[in-house]
């Protein structure tokens, strides 16, 4: 909000938690909808059978996990980026999702190990009784770790973003994920939207009836009561959904239907990918 001429002395305040929550919930819903839009785009991976994608994803994650050389890991990461580009995913969207969080998180996890791996010291510091040194081997290990995590997360994003959620769930059956797990996962995703909308409405209703800035104590009290309300609503919804399932013959076992068809192109995609990943691993072994 811009400053007005009537209140020149007022400083721009940070939005309180209500405004932040409303914005966060709206953003979460919007992001999810946009993600589904990408899955409907006519790109390379979007045309591949979801089961083929799941198989290749598992093989690729295994290859990334087993690989120990930085060049091979970097090559695999570049390959995922190229796949994203051929699948018409915006580069900024894809890379930002990975690079903003993963290196930071992985780096923090790895920092203690950075000082424990022996090798040729590159940076040293004496802090009294504590001698800290970062070795060349430590830095290489950090780079391998961050690249491995980035490549794995990129693969997961690539799979999720280029596959409609419903298809992805059905495709999980190919790796023998139990039906009940798939159905529960699907229903969780389905009803999380309703709960997000409920949260948004709760916060909007509160915001519309609030004048001035509530105290921290008031805000804490309200959060507590909202959590209770949300829990009650979600409990009622789960009961209603269960009744709706029973009303259509549900007796505890879940049955699903699949109309996927593996085409020659899908088999080719799986075969080529597996061969290339195997070659990458063999090359990786040669570099050790």
């Amino acid at each position: 909000m811009e400053r007005t001429g009537f209140l020149p002395w007022r400083r721009k305040r940070k939005p309180d938690f209500v405004a932040r929550t409303i914005a966060g919930v709206a953003e979460a819903i919007e992001r999810s909808v946009y993600t589904e839009e990408y899955a409907r785009t006519d790109g390379f991976l979007q045309r591949v059978d979801p089961r083929a994608k799941v198989v290749v994803f598992i093989c690729a994650v295994l290859a990334v996990g087993l690989s120990r050389s930085l060049p091979v890991l970097l090559a695999l990461y570049v390959a995922t980026v190229l796949m994203a580009l051929t699948s018409r995913l915006p580069l900024g969207f894809f890379v930002k999702r990975v690079l903003l969080g993963v290196p930071l998180f992985a780096g923090i996890v790895f920092i203690p190990a950075l000082f424990l791996i022996h090798g040729k010291p590159l940076v040293q510091a004496d802090l009294g009784v504590l001698h800290l040194a970062i070795s060349d081997n430590g830095l290489i290990s950090l780079a391998i770790f961050v690249t491995r995590v980035s490549a794995s997360v990129s693969l997961a994003i690539l799979l999720v973003v280029t596959t409609q959620w419903a298809d992805l769930l059905k495709a999980l059956r190919v790796i023998r994920v139990p039906s009940v797990f798939i159905v529960v996962l699907g229903m969780t995703y389905r009803y999380i939207f309703l709960l997000l909308q409920t949260v948004e409405n709760l916060f909007l209703a509160r915001s519309s009836r609030t004048v001035g800035r509530p105290t921290d104590a008031e805000q804490r009290r309200w959060i507590g009561s909202s959590m209770g309300t949300l829990m009650g609503k979600s409990f009622k919804t789960s009961n209603d959904v269960y009744q709706a399932m029973v009303a259509r013959g549900f007796t505890g076992d879940v049955y699903t239907i699949s109309d996927f068809k593996m085409r020659d192109e899908d088999w080719l995609f799986v075969s080529l990918s597996v061969v290339l990943l195997a070659l990458a691993l063999i090359f990786d072994l040669g570099l050790r």
Binding site: A166, G186, Y191, I257
Partner: peptide, 17 residues
Amino acid sequence: FSPTVYDDVAFGPLQMG
């Protein structure tokens, strides 16, 4: 409650066996 409309319409018949 299903991921797609088709799955929802098929839910009952599938439960019927």
